[in-house]
Design a protein around this nucleic acid. Structure first.
Ligand SMILES: [Zn+2]
Ligand SMILES: [Zn+2]
Ligand SMILES: [Zn+2]
Ligand SMILES: [Zn+2]
Lengths: 137, 137
DNA sequence: ATTACGTATGTAATAATATAACACTTAGAG
DNA sequence: CTCTAAGTGTTATATTATTACATACGTAAT
């Protein structure tokens, strides 16, 4: 099948390690920690922390995943176009994390920083909440 | 000396360890890392990471210092009333950190989350910038 | 095809950050 | 004084992340 198929951009094709790390995060949907990812992917051939961290770094750089700084965890990007501006809610009780998609909020923040002459290159917003199910119980 | 002098609120008085850690952060003005603090305060009698982390935890809880999550560092609060809502700029080139005091921005963010019915308990905003001196050079 | 180059890989060792466990002390409340 | 909550000191250990180095692989130019 296929002759001389030119992959126009090598950089858009994930390597094996990047692929399996991304797939795990995709299937999980939750934030995962690097060493959990390592343990989970032992059977796929990942043997060392560095293999995981390298894949994570690249995926973050590509914007396919995000790091949630306050919990040292990584989560699949749930948003079509973050452009490295990220915003999350984190439940203070159960730890559940959601990426904020609300365009009003993110645009509002962008406007605010412009209005206040903060020339930012990107931002990361972590909002702590009590999630619905935690509020009930 | 002193007869029955009642410290109305014990919780407002810092302990020795909390005091010396706070003083160091105060005098520094920059974000410091826990193990740097430990090394700096060996001569003051701090011998173990736990002594530092315990003091830091308490000071964060009291709102006297903040943790900057993306660099695992702690900085004196430069603001009279953060109420655990924090906002920083971090230079992507030199690492310089500033606490944002801009009330327009922080109020604006609070309004935005209200407008969008995010019931948050607190937030931490980390804005990445190219600081003035880095922009020049 | 050969070379050169940038990127990725595999592996071992180690650094940096943070917490658990336990025995003991201190200071305030009643 | 006695009880209790909070803080201390210390050792050990867990968790998170990087350095260093040798090797492989894909692309593009020669
Ligand atoms: Zn995203
Ligand atoms: Zn919850
Ligand atoms: Zn502050
Ligand atoms: Zn700078």
């Amino acid at each position: 099948m296929s002759s001389t198929h030119t992959h126009s951009k090598k950089s858009q094709i994930l390597t094996k390690n990047q692929r399996i790390v991304l797939d795990l995060l995709q299937n999980s949907g939750e934030p995962l920690k690097a060493y959990f990812i390592l343990d989970s992917l032992k059977k796929e051939g990942l043997n060392s922390p560095l293999q995981v961290y390298r894949a994570l770094d690249k995926l973050v750089e590509l914007g396919k995943i995000h790091k949630i700084e306050s919990i040292n965890s990584f989560i699949i990007c749930n948003n079509s176009n973050c452009a490295s501006n990220t915003a999350f809610t984190i439940c203070e009780r159960c730890g559940k994390v959601k990426e904020i998609k609300n365009k009003n909020l993110t645009d509002g923040v962008s406007d605010l920083v412009k209005d206040n002459q903060l020339e930012i290159t990107r931002y990361n917003l972590e909002f702590y909440v009590l999630c619905k199910s935690c509020k009930i119980n």
